[in-house]
Design a protein around this nucleic acid. Sequence first.
DNA 1: CGGCTTTGACCGGCGC
DNA 2: GCGCCGGTCAAAGCCG
Length: 335
Amino acid sequence: MSDEPKELFYQDLVLDQNQPTTTGSTMYCDKQFSSFGSSSACETQAFDPSYLSFTECLQGNMDYNSLSTSFGLSPSSSEVFSSIEGNQKSAEGGDLCRDVGGGSEALGTQNSSISSSSSEAGAEGDSGKSKSDSQVKGDQEGERSSKKGNKGKKKGENKEKEPRFAFMTKSEVDQLEDGYRWRKYGQKAVKNSPYPRSYYRCTTQKCTVKKRVERSFQDPTTVITTYEGQHNHPVPTSLRGNSAGMFTPLLSIPTPLSAGATAGSNIPQEFFLHMPHHHNFMNINPQANTAASGLSIYSSQNYNTSLHQQYQLPLPHDYGLLQDIVPSKFLKQEP
DNA sequence: CGGCTTTGACCGGCGC
DNA sequence: GCGCCGGTCAAAGCCG
């Protein structure tokens, strides 16, 4: 399959903290990520990767406060979805859905109130329910005692959820090349969306990572990929010759929608494989596993200059740390 | 022939 | 209790 993105670009992502009204992406901290504290979800206006130390992300030791700080929003200013507290449905599914599905709305105006966005918008995306997660968990850990009729799901058990990470990518193809091998195990029509949602599972043995891929019906050029779990193995080197090959054509710049940061969980390596080249993720995570370490290879020089110039990275609190990530020349202080 | 995709059926959670 | 819905299974088919 030709899963190489053909047309990829940051969707209106302007990293200008002085212009919060510019379109941007939205990042969610899912409730399931306990490390985010009681504030189960937050929305950043114009998700700015530069705010955040990806090392923190990778190491998954980022708490809500640091997250808020890193993303340039205070806990109070962050948009917390009240419904999330006790209803993760809206947290992981509905909100993500709304954000994603309502891409033109939520993404178009990051000030839009995601939590109260129209049902129309919410219709599209990941409307997964919490039960789904528990079910998934049950499947994964319970090893599915049997097939249909008894999915081995243990009610009320294994409520913990795999870390999830969702992002949007402008792509004409649904499944982006991320270096891993996936097997499609299902496809479902998404309510109120003409585009189906595909379910993939990592083909590597004992790897329970799954991902869902769907296309935003608000913006058909946008693909929403949701990763669940983390790979317990390196990127298959045999894939398409070698792992390095997967970097070549990737110009994909995803828009994080949901970040999983449970202790010990990493944001899926795929995310970083798709991150803006200029972030130069070299050795940002000494503790990264092999797969993530593969990013160190990714010192792409084929920057999109115009895109670069478009970025106006603010000086974050942890500028020093960021320097290790982003070349100084890209860190210019806003006047 | 092995690996993958397709697709209808099934299950459980949730809302009404 | 019922229907809706998301997620998953697994048989069948496809493909290299």
